[in-house]
Amino acid sequence: MLGVPTEYFLVLSGILFTIGVIGVLIKRNPIVIFMCIELMLNAVNLTFIALGRHFVHVNGQMYVIFVMAVAAAEVAIGLGIIVALFRSKETINIDEVNLMKY
């Protein structure tokens, strides 16, 4: 096994996840928000791989494959929806996507 302890990976992924969450909260462009969500998902992937290595299972790595597939599907649908929204509103700034409120 390599010398890097598992905790390092977990802390790193925790930091990445937090950056992703902050990005989702402060960004106004849905495409950037998607990138932040990808960051969150990749932080999770890192956790799974690190834990899989720690436990000596393939379980953790299996999750990563599934998560990547799901993330790709999500982005594909997401971009489609963003295009549809842009066609009808001429903007994708989420502050202006406010036809429905409370």
Partner: peptide, 22 residues
């Protein structure tokens, strides 16, 4: 409204599922 609803659902749901996965 339909596209707007879809975008809202998409972003919130993607974030929640990332949190769930974490």
């Amino acid at each position: 409204r339909s596209a707007e609803a879809a975008l809202k659902m998409l972003i919130l749901s993607a974030v929640t599922s990332a949190v769930l996965l974490y």
